[in-house]
């Protein structure tokens, strides 16, 4: 299977995201990136699998943890680094930093740092798609913690009531900052979503990008044809601290064994040779993107009050 073209393409994309974030970790101590970074290392397969079957015109709304979705949806890498460096060539002219990436030209509709706040935007965009007769699929990406917020429920209900073409994609890493899911939730996410009356799916192997891509392919097709909402929960694992470039297994709120077990399944960790064949080209691309970011100018004074109204 590791020889199939699909596997290799997805592997390449997932590895690219990981190497980008590893570069962020390397660069971080130099203080050039003055932005809180919520890394997706460990969670790349969700983004590459989910985005594989989306068209450019399909829309994705996401969270502060969205380097992976930005890249998987086709966001421009040099512009992402420029954004992290606070440069005017960044994808949001230096106004966004890491937490609010956007690339509307490829359907990445913006990331919000307020938990759950973009879920209704996905529903609203689906409402527009339906009324305007677009064949778009809209994906709302959120974490397990976001399902505790009222707006998540309000959004699910409305999407089902009005049969809107939206995929609710719950990226479940079992954590909200340092709190475990079971300390926060008395419900089962999947069963609870099912009770709203929409089809629900679960992918337990969130490290397996092929499985994610295949399942999401069916889901996306279903939504595109039926114009009805679907819910999908993808289990995944966050390798790094909630925010910042470091690891935090020594802090005691989770066990290193969980991580080791997850890594055992993680193709990026397991197929070392394949990674080595792709690595040089990716690193070259990253070098160029970082060079672009570092050598491009800071925003001028006029930028401060530009685009306010």
């Amino acid at each position: 299977m590791e020889n199939s073209q699909k596997f290799c393409e997805l592997f390449f994309q997932a590895l690219r995201i990981r190497l980008v974030e590893e570069r962020i970790i390397e660069l971080y101590p130099s203080d050039g990136i003055q932005s809180p970074v919520h890394l997706s290392i460990g969670q790349e397969a969700v983004a590459v699998g989910a985005c594989r079957n989306l068209k450019k015109t399909d829309l994705v709304f996401c969270t502060y943890r969205s380097h992976a979705f930005y890249l998987a949806k086709g966001g421009n890498l040099p512009e992402m680094f420029a954004e992290l460096y606070g440069k005017v060539a960044g994808c949001a002219r230096g106004k966004a930093g890491s937490m609010h990436l956007a690339a509307p030209e490829v359907g990445l509709m913006g990331a919000s740092a307020v938990v759950a706040s973009t879920i209704p935007h996905a529903v609203g965009a689906a409402l527009a798609a339906k009324r305007l007769g677009h064949d778009q699929v809209v994906v709302g990406v959120f974490g397990d913690g976001a399902t505790e917020e009222g707006v998540y429920h309000e959004s699910l209900n409305f999407a089902v009531l009005h049969r809107l073409p939206v995929v609710f994609l719950c990226e479940n890493n079992g954590l909200a900052v340092h709190s475990s899911q079971k300390s926060r939730q008395g419900y089962n996410i999947l069963e609870h979503a099912r009770s709203y009356g929409l089809p629900v799916y679960q992918i337990a192997e969130g490290y397996d990008f092929v499985k994610v891509a295949d399942t999401m392919s069916g889901i996306t097709q279903h939504v595109r044809l039926t114009r009805e909402p679907v819910f999908v929960e993808i289990r995944t694992y966050r390798y790094k601290e909630h925010v910042g470039p470091g690891e935090d297994f020594m802090c005691g709120y989770r066990k290193t064994e969980e991580w080791l077990a997850w890594k055992q399944q993680d193709p990026l960790e397991q197929y070392v040779n394949l990674a080595e064949t792709f690595r040089p080209a990716i690193l070259k691309e990253i070098d160029k993107a970082v060079h672009f970011a570092m050598s491009s100018p800071f925003p001028s004074v006029e930028e401060l009050l530009r685009d306010v109204v």
Binding site: G86, V88, G90, G94, K95, G97, P299, L304, L305, V308
Partner: peptide, 16 residues
């Protein structure tokens, strides 16, 4: 603060 949302680029934030 300047009449804008807070920008993230440090050079703008220092002006903000």
């Amino acid at each position: 603060m300047q009449p804008a949302p807070c920008p993230t680029a440090k050079c703008l934030e220092d002006l903000f």
